[in-house]
């Protein structure tokens, strides 16, 4: 069980890079400004559906640049905490009440099972370096005016997906839908934002579902229950002490 939690934590850490940071080059700045969480307090939930089985994790995350502190609140993992500072990952288990440093290999890859992959998130950091983006259409999607932007992998770039198409809300600067394609043109994954919400005059996707299009009945939902931008984070929050 510890491992699943770990994967989700990795997800949260990467969440700070935002899930849908994809825009055509001229839109990307606005979009990133909007979705990139430099400093935030997020209460979120992740639900992995695999055929008839369901795995639900609830967590509270504090994010500040590349530092993050995550605490799980669902019964199964209640009290489990993670601290990440750069490449160091520390874990606290409530029963044990001890803090253990995790080995680096636990961070590698990850996210198996869930439809989000580690690479999916890592990539978003440098999307414009990996893809040539182009606005292919302007369209109404989910009753919102959207740019439809297509990104094709640059020659020689080491990107997981060959092509991505993303629907970006023109006014709210959020990606409402994203399709990820294989080089053959086959649709592999689809992320759809089902709910958006305004926090402090800032629109943010609060419920998104990722589906593996090659496998029926599997999906991963990511739900943000509350978000606070630029919260006051007391000094010493990202320390081993606060894990205990």
């Amino acid at each position: 069980m510890k491992k699943v939690i770990l994967l989700l934590v990795i997800f949260v850490f990467l969440f700070s890079y935002s899930i849908f940071a994809v825009t055509a080059d001229e839109i990307i700045q606005k979009r990133d400004d909007n979705e990139y969480l430099k400093t935030a307090r997020v209460e979120s939930k992740m639900v992995i559906n695999n055929n008839n089985r369901k795995l639900e994790k609830v967590m509270i995350s504090l994010i500040d640049g590349n530092k993050a502190l995550v605490e799980f609140t669902n019964p199964m993992d209640r009290g489990t905490k993670f601290l990440k500072r750069e490449d160091n990952l520390w874990m606290f288990f409530p029963d044990a009440e001890d803090v253990v440093k995790l080995s680096g290999h636990m961070l590698e890859r990850g996210m198996m099972g869930s439809d989000f992959s580690y690479k999916d998130m890592m990539e978003s950091e440098k999307l414009t370096e990996l893809y040539n983006f182009e606005i292919i259409e302007e369209q109404e999607y989910q009753k919102r005016p959207c740019y439809v932007i297509e990104g094709i992998k640059k020659q020689g770039a080491e990107a997981t997906y060959y092509k991505r198409i993303v629907w970006i809300d023109k006014e709210r600067h959020i990606g409402l839908k994203e399709e990820l394609y294989a080089e053959s043109g086959k649709l592999l994954k689809e992320i759809v934002v089902q709910e958006v919400q305004e926090f402090d005059h800032r629109w943010y996707p609060t419920k998104s579902v990722m589906e593996d299009k090659l496998r029926e009945n599997t999906s991963t939902e990511f739900i943000i229950e509350s978000i606070e931008f630029n919260p006051e984070i007391p000094e010493g929050t990202f320390s081993l002490q606060s894990l205990q």
């Binding site: 690479k119 992998k153 020689g156 770039a157 080491e158 990107a159 997981t160 997906y161 060959y162 294989a182 080089e183 053959s184 086959k186 592999l188 090659l214």
Partner: peptide
């Protein structure tokens, strides 16, 4: 049949 794999650049591709 569908084959899912990664190319040398790590990009997903499929063969049907």
């Amino acid at each position: 049949i569908t084959l899912l794999f990664k190319t040398k650049e790590g990009t997903f591709n499929t063969i049907e």
